[in-house]
Design a protein around this nucleic acid. Structure first.
Lengths: 230, 230
DNA sequence: ACCTGAACACCGTTCAAGT
DNA sequence: ACCTGAACACCGTTCAAGT
């Protein structure tokens, strides 16, 4: 039996099973969540995508929780941290938070994962350290910086998680958006005048980055307002 | 066969199966989540608690998602909204957000549910309307009010969700807290000086309400800072 | 109207082997 | 070291009945 491999050359099958590594698994899990939502991320499904038995994944992750942690870590690692730069602390803070939000927005269906995992991975710690350092130079105590900094990061992550997930085709996306608008507009104008006035915005149609400017601006403005007198 | 009921009187069994209603199911689901965490909330488990077959619950909820929505709605309904009251808008906003946080803090393991469900139930809409109304009197446009208001609510909910869930006995709770502190303190002081300085606060030991004052204060201060010149 | 019972197609995970 | 195969104890949900 001379042919011991179905691939054309003697090199081990490449495209078919390009290595099984924690990073590759987490990456495909992330891509799967982007395509079909977090609930589609399944040990068995992932194994199938890698043409491997479900149990094979357990060599690389203790359990599914560890896999989820890995996804969050990968997401945090994708943040393109800006150079320290110059300028006032709040300008640097704004750029830092902007980078954070930009990275999360690329994967809205798993953005919520980082809310409770900010301090349990290296890239998360690096980001938190930078935020705390800026708050330190602003004059906050370590305790204040800890609360304000983690609040800022958690809140922005939650804000991004608010975005609609995959929804496959853009047609269904539009339909859902219209439905949400119509539902809000159908409310009693007597009881909910302000909601109706803002229905279009509340329905979350715009997902351009201008939309997120206000969230970041709010947080940074709050920090400046609470800044101890220097 | 004269005895057609195992209960003593002719009245239908009371304590044994005190009626099966959507509200009762959602309430027990919420209690279960408080005791054992959200992942313990299961159609089958809930049915068992109500001494009923799993399928019986489907008469009252279309599917599990609807049940989860019901839990979120119940949580929002438990908010004890303050009287409109007097004083500047930001003071009233502070009281409103405080009431919101107080209600969520009673059920930290499901607080995260409201992040994406703020506008899909009546009590959520009532709260949002009040927030928008205050922002309207502050001079914000409906669009600004919508973004700022939903951001404030989502971010505070996410912040509460950061708290540890059930953990059963307080001993395990303490152990987990100590472990988190130790882990942070074991980081490189060269790389993470600010994290180490704030390790105790970051580990989330205090869950008194003073802890949440800062989050609310930050949001309200941010709103005031962004308030259009009046 | 409200609940049951059996069944289906999935889960995460264990254990004992294989190479 | 890395993967397989069969099995276990769970899931949510369907369908067809029961009363």
């Amino acid at each position: 039996m001379p042919a011991k491999n179905t691939s054309m050359s003697a090199t081990p099958a490449r495209a078919a099973r390009p290595r099984l590594t924690p990073d590759a698994i987490a990456a495909s899990a992330l891509a799967l969540a982007d395509r079909e939502g977090l609930e589609a991320v399944t040990i068995r499904r992932l194994a199938q995508d890698h043409q491997v038995t479900p149990m094979a994944l357990y060599r690389h992750f203790r359990d599914k929780d560890a896999l989820i942690d890995g996804m969050a870590e990968r997401l945090l690692a994708s943040i393109c941290l800006p150079e320290a730069g110059s300028g006032p602390w709040h300008a640097r803070m704004h750029r830092l938070l902007q980078a954070f939000v930009d990275a999360l927005r690329a994967h809205p269906s798993i953005a919520g994962l980082v809310v409770t995992r900010m301090l349990s991975s290296d890239p998360g710690l690096v980001l938190a350290e930078r935020v705390l350092a800026l708050l330190h130079t602003a004059g906050f105590t370590p305790e204040q910086a800890a609360e304000i900094g983690t609040y800022a990061l958690c809140s922005l992550a939650a804000w991004v998680a608010t975005e609609r997930g995959p929804d496959l085709d853009p047609e269904a996306r539009d339909a859902a958006l219209r439905l949400r608008k119509a539902t809000l507009n159908a409310l009693s104008p007597r009881q909910y005048p302000n909601i109706i006035d803002a229905a279009d915005t509340l329905a979350h149609g715009a997902d351009d980055r201008a939309f997120y400017r206000l969230g970041i601006a709010l947080v940074v403005a709050g920090m400046r307002a609470l800044q101890p007198g220097d």
